[in-house]
Amino acid sequence: MDWEVIFRNAILAGISREAAVYAIAAVGLNVHFGYTGLLNFGQVGFMSISAYGVGISITQYGAPVWLAFIIGLLAAVFLALLLGVPTLRLRADYLAIVTIAASEIIRLTFRSVALTDWSGGSNGINGFADGFYVWNPFDPSVAYGFGSVKVFGNQAYIIIVGWTLAVLVTLLVWLLMRSPWGRVLKSIREDEDAARALGKNAYWYKMQSLILGGVLGGLAGIVLSVGQSTVQPDVYSPPVTFFIWTALILGGVGRIWSPIFGAVAFWMILSLANNVLDQATQAGIVPAAVTAGVRGGSIRFMIVGLGLMLLMAFRPQGVFGDRNEMMLADR
């Protein structure tokens, strides 16, 4: 077992663009669930609709990069309105069901044969991200980093952009949550009827929250698609939402920095598990059949599922949360 490789990969995973993407999306989910109590089980739908918004507006309509980004984020606003209008007056479970359904609809629609000319079917859209790499200060052929932890120029660029955005949106949410606006959101999380009895338009605040968190999800999707230089429908499949949920809960729901901690921790743990399993298989400690083919991949989903259950049951406050505060939540 090569522990150096295992740990190097874990560190790379922790700082990877995927971790940054998850952090941004988890900030959005934190606005939804952590501060407002909204159950969004379709965050990946927001990611995908924005990524496609960017991809399609560049490849189909030749939009400049900045405009494409705005269109992408507006697509997330649109989705939030579409999902919020019918459901935010109803019990929270309705939003949960409708969001998970919507994320699947979006995936199926974008990958559909009927729309191939527009959204590229199951192959998705390629080659729209060039305009973004124009500003890349790094040399794509040079590896940057410390010691053996190195990434190539384009990666370094997207990692820096991704994490900068993650920190910026975290600060944005921090500004909002210390304000009376954030107080209304939290009051809705605790008891919507109490907020309404005090004259707060809970519906409208929930809508604002859904839009804000959705736009952050959209931003995450854009970063991911630009980083991959492609947007493919099946990258944005339902389990991604639950990965992000796990990252958020790992960090601690309803806390400012937890999405970032959670995303880093999530990817490091996943990488450790994967690499240890790989190495163990290679070293013959684990029989090859255990991880052969589709099995190796499914193990990681199982780990996430199990982790999500155990976290929620035994440490719902996450690694950094306050157990006492969590215990007060009487629902």
Binding site: S179, E190, D191, L198, A329
Partner: peptide, 29 residues
């Protein structure tokens, strides 16, 4: 009773005031 359990007592109180400027999205920032 609908006390907002995970908000401090003082925040519970402050929530009651109507028409707060900081309750609008942009000024809140």
């Amino acid at each position: 009773t609908k006390s907002l359990t995970r908000l401090p007592v003082i925040e519970n109180m402050k929530l009651g005031v109507k028409e707060q400027r900081g309750e609008r999205f942009l000024p809140a920032l």
